[in-house]
Design a protein around this nucleic acid. Structure first.
Length: 404
RNA sequence: GGGGGGAUACCAAAGUGGCCAAAUGGGGCAGACUGUAAAUCUGUUGUCGGAAGACUUCGCAGGUUCGAAUCCUGCUCCCCCCA
């Protein structure tokens, strides 16, 4: 395999990247790699704590994929061991440690999903239980002598928690050491991480240096802002777009992001080529509505294929813009000639979690039957034969009521 | 080991015997509007009930009282200070 010129590689690598520490070392490594025709070892460590991958995770996985496409070696570490410690980064709480079974199960689902982004053939997957798990207490003591307490508590997440009188468990200090040890073991050339991972990645450099290795370059990617437009994408903030979600959901959720996020999303989570990005930028300025639809289409296509993306687009236009009932709305059958209470129908069909909620929705005009708003909680329907009524509850819940 | 502080709904945070299903903010949801599930504005936000009302909820378990998120006892968990 022959590598692309260094400056071309660098352009791809720098797409969306926040910081490369230090950039000169990366250039040197790339030059050497090309000269010796030897791929760089790119490390990405993930903790299988939450098995559902979303676009936030995809940012870094895509970066790893880009390295693969450039001919480098991708090493995906499933942090079986570190998951049991729990990364304290950005946390305001100690993470609950996971059991081995949970970790194994999560790891499996994680890998399945990650393969949607990575080049499966070229990915080396390892589990750090294999080397961290066999370390002795003495090994750990020696390792921990390499970092000072002052160094640890100056970290934002720890100092904040400390100031807010929230607990910090001692084992959380060990996390960066464990992660750094991974780099030593794997002799990584580059480690990928989110900006919040800077500290952890730098520890890797230090440990490699003290082991006599050439230290890794740290490549930091931005944290993807979630659909709410303020916080980083995370399942716990419920502002995420999962890569396993239904095409309609992905499409719709992409449209719900604030306009400022359209470009960052294109840059960070789509496969739109780097030299097309300037054109995308222009389109966003001139026609944000359609640019956002392009984004939604592209992301949906990436995970579900072109046809599903076309369908999702149609679905969106039908249901949200034209407010029509979608074709795939659930169909519920009733007997004709007998009265049914609408509120019960809604509850049975799980279109609303409780009658209280249904009443609230009705009061606010959120329940419509054949485009007529229903305000009366006692509303009853008596079907005639071969009747079909279109029920809409809230913005996005539909049912087709038919009678026999 | 000693001393002090704290635990309230999805989250943050008021409330210190009845007016508390519990202020306020965030989030969520809905309506209007629109270029979209953007933005903005408005409304809404325990369960059951058509309603009146009933029931469950303020860390856990008991108790006092006509009546407790609020008082008492025990327990669990957390934080700080001193050693």
């Amino acid at each position: 395999m022959s590598f692309s010129p260094v400056d071309e590689q660098l352009a791809v690598i720098k797409r969306g990247t926040v910081e490369i520490v230090p950039e000169e070392e990366l250039i040197d490594k790339l030059k050497k790699s090309k000269a010796e025709n030897k791929p760089l070892r790119i490390k990405l460590g993930v903790d299988p704590t939450r098995p559902d991958l979303h676009l936030g995770h995809s940012v870094i996985l895509r970066k790893l994929r880009q390295f693969q496409d450039l001919g480098h070696e991708a090493i995906l570490i499933i942090g079986g061991f570190t998951a049991m410690i729990g990364d304290p980064t950005g946390q305001n709480k100690t993470r609950p440690p996971l059991s081995t079974q949970e970790v194994n199960h999560n790891a499996e689902t994680y890998i399945t999903q990650a393969k949607k982004i990575l080049d499966e053939q070229k990915t080396t997957i390892v589990d750090n239980v294999d080397w961290l798990g066999s370390m002795t207490f003495m090994d750990v003591v020696k390792l921990s002598s390499k970092l000072t307490v002052a160094r640890m508590i100056e970290r934002d997440d720890f100092s904040k928690r400390y100031q807010n009188q929230e607990p910090i468990s001692l084992h959380e200090f060990l996390y960066p050491l464990a992660q750094g040890q991974d780099s030593v073991y794997l002799k990584s050339d580059v480690e990928l991480g989110g900006t919040d991972q800077k500290f952890n990645l730098l520890v890797g450099r230090e440990l490699q240096k003290s082991d006599g290795q050439e230290p890794q370059v740290c490549l930091l990617m931005p944290l993807l802002v979630g659909t709410d437009g303020t916080m980083k994408m995370s399942k716990s903030y419920d502002n995420y777009i999962g890569i396993d979600e239904h095409a309609n959901e992905i499409y719709g959720k992409c449209l719900s992001i604030p306009d400022e996020l359209i470009y960052p999303y294109f840059e960070l989570v789509t496969d739109v080529s780097t030299n097309e990005l300037p054109a995308v930028k222009t389109k966003i300025e001139n026609d944000p509505r359609n640019a956002k639809h392009d984004l939604a289409f592209t992301v949906t296509r990436m995970y579900h294929g072109k046809q599903a993306a076309i369908d999702a687009k149609n679905h969106f236009e039908q249901t949200i813009i034209k407010k029509n009932i979608p074709d795939d709305a659930p169909v519920i059958a009733f007997k004709s000639g007998k009265p049914y209470r609408l509120m019960e129908i809604i509850l049975d069909a799980k279109l609303s979690p409780s009658n209280g909620e249904t009443k609230r929705l009705m009061k606010q005009g959120g329940v419509t039957l054949n485009d007529e708003k229903v305000f009366d909680p006692n509303f009853e329907i008596t079907f005639t034969e071969h009747d079909e009524l279109h029920l809409k509850v809230g913005k996005r819940k539909f049912a087709r009521l038919i009678s026999e």
